[in-house]
Design a protein around this nucleic acid. Structure first.
Lengths: 335, 335
DNA sequence: ATCAAGTCTGGTATCGATACCAAAAACACA
DNA sequence: TGTGTTTTTGGTATCGATACCAGACTTGAT
């Protein structure tokens, strides 16, 4: 194996004294080749250090064995578990994952999709469910499975794997009400491009309205750039000033809840005595060894696995169209 | 554009009444085509919704315009920023990123590398620097840039982008000593496959030895599976029992430090009064709005950008071989 | 020994782009 | 107008695999 030159299937075939197609079969469908030849070929592969060229294979078989994923962000633990489940399941099946992040920018989404389609993937995963006209047109013109994840759109483009952010938030609101809280605020979910946050906020508002309470959401301003821990810390400074009677705060994420809890400690505010706090996500930080935070636990890894299975067997997945992996409300020390 | 059938370059060429090569040139080197034809071609591309097939292009030009990355884990904020910087810089230059995680398993690393090489990437990024013989052989036989990141190996395979984990940990130890701490323990860095943690532990031990102090590292057991917040919480229960005089704890990561701080609050231990705590990473949780944690801040995003630039222009990068992005010790409230 | 049915094997065309080279067109200048 | 140079263009071969089909080889039953 000389540096800079790839060994080809022909080289292997020549060394093993077989046709190239036999080498191909040893790799893809070994059971169709006699044991003697198979071993000869495998020996030659090892000897030459042959690594097949899947690009070429993709071209002739029109199966790339690659899936594409477009996620809103990787700089966040939200999707990390899902990507883990997705990529490990796919790799076990001999597939690869091409990953792109959009940072919640719809224009980037279109570019990224174009670039992805240029690789002729066997399927696509998206974390957003509202698409520009151009994106929707591209996706519809394509005959590969498209899986939208982490949400359950009313009308999936093809297949959806996720859970109801609306319902989960509504459940949490009811939990807080059942704990005797009467002035429940919602923190976060103000970023207009983050649909999951918006749905959670809506679920909260619906639950409060149903119970005859008045929703208090903060920040009001869609342009407010703060998020995560910083937002949680700002809660006391700004939101609580406007709404001094608030006795519970539902956070759009565990991150935000951590910000609230840190600031509460700093100010000597008792949790859950003075104020109850809930998160969303079920990440490590919410565990009893961490903040002991009441939260909605999302099976992120399972979403990834289920998505991989949907991509690998789209026919079965299309029978349901919507795969609901559910969530669970974990009651801990902060409520 | 009919569902299920891809438009080819030939289709575009026919519609625009030019040769296929002209279409190719409009896409890759538009300045070499007359304006009139260029516009005709671009109109045809739009009309047909043509998406070029990069797989085919890769085959004939032997340039895949894809880079491969093998990371230890994505289920961790450690690499998320780096991946963000990497993938956004690469995408801006028209390249894609093929991502695989190994979960610190060396066998997976070999498989993943094989799978990656099968896509004939234009370069490879690795987060580990100790490789199995098989992996090293494969990497050496390949004539594409190989970038090892987040560490500075003494003998990089090709190019390295990172910082000295050893030096950073040593600096932190000296900081704690300068604050008057005399019994400094190190928490974490016991996982044998996580080299970054090992180097930090070594840097700590070297600094303490130099100052004539006795290093105390915990857990002792390489097989201890706990990590992150859970490990921080266990510190009080187990490590402090054995070493009751400890007055500072250096944590291998911000995550672990959070575990320590949570448990300290729970037990009424004063920080930094009774015990000083430091982290490593500089993630959001360490900010003043969060835990106000003294930590080593790593420019994760910049590592990604520098890595992308090294991949795109390996010749320049090879002039240095080692690109040190540095780190900074951020002193905050916990020490 | 012979034949039918099934199993293996390999030659050749093909996937969709780009490289290379030669032809055509455009241009410059005497 | 003619000649030499540069720019633009397209035809054909090629990249490295797989699909398809036809031929060779087994196998088992008669």
């Amino acid at each position: 194996m000389t540096k800079g030159k790839w060994v080809t299937m022909k080289d292997v075939a020549d060394l093993a004294k077989v046709g190239t197609i036999t080498v191909s079969r040893v790799l893809r469908t070994p059971e169709k080749v006699t044991e003697a030849k198979r071993e000869r070929v495998q020996k030659a592969i090892k000897e030459l250090g042959y690594v097949p060229d899947n690009t070429a294979g993709a071209l002739s078989s029109s199966k790339s064995r690659v899936f594409g994923a477009i996620v809103s962000t990787i700089n966040d633990s939200v999707f990390a578990q899902t990507l883990d489940g997705l990529s490990s399941t796919l790799r076990a099946a001999g597939y690869e994952l091409l990953l792109t992040s959009t940072n919640y920018d719809p224009e980037v989404e279109e570019d990224a999709l174009q670039a992805l389609l240029a690789r002729r993937p066997d399927g696509i995963v998206l974390t957003s469910t509202s698409h520009s006209a151009e994106v929707a047109k591209l996706l519809k013109s394509v005959s590969i499975p498209v899986v939208e994840i982490w949400q359950l759109p009313p009308e999936p483009l093809d297949i959806a794997v996720g859970f109801s952010n609306f319902q989960a938030a509504s459940d949490m609101a009811h939990h807080l009400i059942s704990k005797g809280r009467r002035n429940i605020a919602f923190l976060g979910g103000h970023e207009p491009r983050n649909e999951r946050g918006l749905r959670r906020r809506e679920g909260y508002a619906a639950a409060l309205n149903q119970a005859g309470m008045t929703p208090v959401v903060w920040p009001h301003d869609n342009q407010d750039l703060r998020s995560g821990i910083e937002l949680g810390a700002a809660f006391f400074e700004e939101c609580l000033k406007e709404n001094s009677q608030v006795d519970a705060v539902m956070c759009v994420s565990d991150q935000v809840a951590v910000g609230v809890l840190c600031e509460a400690k700093r100010r000597g505010v008792e949790v859950p005595g003075d104020i109850a706090v809930s998160g969303f996500g079920g990440f490590e930080v919410s565990t009893p060894s961490g903040f002991d935070l009441t939260t909605i636990a999302i099976p992120g890894f399972e979403i990834g696995v289920a998505t991989a299975n949907a991509l690998l067997d789209p026919e079965t997945a299309r029978a349901n169209k919507i795969i609901d992996v559910g969530y669970s409300l974990v009651e801990r020390g902060t409520t």
